[in-house]
Amino acid sequence: MKIIAMLSRLVGFLALAALIVWSFVGMEIDRAHLPTGVAAGFSFVGRMIPHGKADFRYDLSLRDQIMQPLLDTIQMAVVGTVAGAIMAFPMSFFAARTSVFPRSLSAAIKSYLNVSRAIPTIVYALIILSAIGLGKTAGSIAIGYVTFISLSKLYAEALESVSQGPIDAVRASGGNSVQVFVYGMMPQVFPHYLATSLYSFEYNLKDSFIVGIVGAGGLGAQLLDSIHEFKLLDTGVIIALLIVLVNVVDYCSYRVRAVFS
């Protein structure tokens, strides 16, 4: 038995090594052109950054063009996260492996979640776009669905890691099933639910850029157009906004999690 275990571990290790080597070789990095390529990359980024007053004035003039899509992006992320979280809450109870529902139900729901999770948001966005047309409603639905799928799984994992102790204690002192849920379980899972929901909101902000690329509303479309039309100053402004937005949300979510830990 020991030899088989060692052999299978060795095979696994060799397979992993082969995968890594194959992936890097597959890059076909052209060493001769590497210096010029890197220089071109830097100049590309350099042209996104404003030089001088005229460039700054141009950046500011984009305000009217960019403000509405930016707000759309934020709205899509908020609506998608809230709707997804609300739907995921009840779903997680059926998805979790607990003693309440049969194991087969949990297994069936988990495989559905896993299949759905393998598909990127942009694919859902394309499907919904073809059904209801261009715009931020389609983007919100796609983001909401993906959030529902991933939060159902994460919430269920939090439920599965609950310790039985406080549940026993509330039951043993005469609490009914609702009280056991509110006092024995919720305090244990609430910090996890909050943290994963906030993380998912950050992720959704980035996702709502991506779905914008296929026309589901938000700044993504502007980002792609600016690159195609070589208006790199526009690209720079949009990326800067994304960086600020994601970091502001990250900071706020850190503060909120600290309060409710």
Binding site: D168, A172, S173, G174, N176, Q179, P187
Partner: peptide, 30 residues
């Protein structure tokens, strides 16, 4: 019946995130 039977455990089994007073009040839930 359980309201009249208290139980204390090796692992304490209190609700860690709640206050001391809330944990005592859990004894009144029934």
């Amino acid at each position: 019946l359980r309201r009249r039977i208290g139980m204390i455990f090796q692992e304490f089994n209190l609700v860690d995130r709640l206050t001391v007073l809330k944990n005592v009040l859990i004894g009144r839930l029934g």
